[in-house]
């Protein structure tokens, strides 16, 4: 079909890159590359540095984004949080309310360009973690409730074209978020996306993905990469040039 782009059309320009040889450097050192900050609370949260390292490596291999494949653990009121514009809050249990300083910093972080991915790993509806997350968001953004992201949301097309979001489990198959300006700086999944990414030191996956197995894991990886890309490009994929082109090529309805 002529409506589909040729492989050279999509990546033709990149073909010349191979001839150009390796670049002299990748970013100006770690501080300018993308990494992950894991928010750690007194209880209820998890740290999965291997999951994020895997995501960042997958991102480097799949996209042109330069990443430092590491995760740093920070408390919400740590000013160092502002050195890491991509943060995650992962957990499976109830966590305590944030103090005023931490809450204020979290609001400022999200208001001025930070991005937070919240991942409920419990794999059950109405988990204690879910209740704590919703209470936290109510405290921080009382006028901006969590809403389900529509199928047209940029996060579903920021790099991969995704039909539905899944993680280690596929119970909810949805993402929620709060909007500030033109983007959603906080996105929430209840399907344990980080569980699909997490692995042991020897590289083997830690958790089985149910019910879809490795195909589901692949979709979870794609979703996680899209989250990184969305955090960087926000609603870029809703720019007219992209929408028009994707529709012309029949890849978007």
């Amino acid at each position: 079909m002529s409506s589909h782009p040729s492989r050279r059309g999509l990546l033709g320009a990149a073909a010349a890159l191979a001839l150009a040889g390796p670049r002299a450097a990748f970013g100006f050192g770690a501080p300018t590359r993308v990494d992950v900050a894991e928010l750690q609370l007194a209880r209820g949260t998890l740290s999965r540095p291997n999951a994020w390292s895997r995501l960042l490596l997958e991102t480097v291999q799949t996209t042109s984004v330069e990443c430092t494949p590491r995760a740093v653990q920070l408390e919400p009121d740590d000013p160092e949080l502002f050195a890491h514009p991509f943060a995650v809050l992962v957990g499976d249990g109830e966590f305590p309310s944030l103090g005023a300083a931490a809450r204020e910093q979290l609001v400022r972080y999200l208001s001025y360009g930070g991005f937070l991915f919240v991942d409920d790993t419990s794999g059950v509806p109405d988990s204690p973690f879910d209740k704590s997350v919703r209470a936290l968001i109510q405290d921080c953004f009382p006028t901006r409730p969590l809403t389900v992201l529509s199928a047209e949301h940029s996060v579903y097309r920021s790099f991969f074209l995704l039909r539905e979001p899944v993680g280690r489990v596929a119970l909810h198959r949805r993402l929620e978020g709060i909007s500030l300006g033109s983007m959603h700086p906080l996105i929430y999944s209840q399907d344990d996306v980080s569980g699909a990414l997490d692995r042991r030191e020897d590289g083997l996956d830690l958790h089985a993905c149910v019910p879809g197995g490795e195909i589901q894991r692949r979709e979870a990886v794609k979703l996680a990469i899209n989250l990184i890309m969305y955090a960087l490009t926000s609603n870029y994929k809703h720019d007219q040039a992209h929408v028009r082109q994707l529709m012309q090529e029949g890849r978007l309805e």
């Binding site: 990546l11 990149a14 890159l17 291999q61 996209t63 984004v65 790099f159 490009t233």
Partner: peptide
Amino acid sequence: FILRTQSDL
């Protein structure tokens, strides 16, 4: 934005 290059294939 160039989201992908030859080296990402």
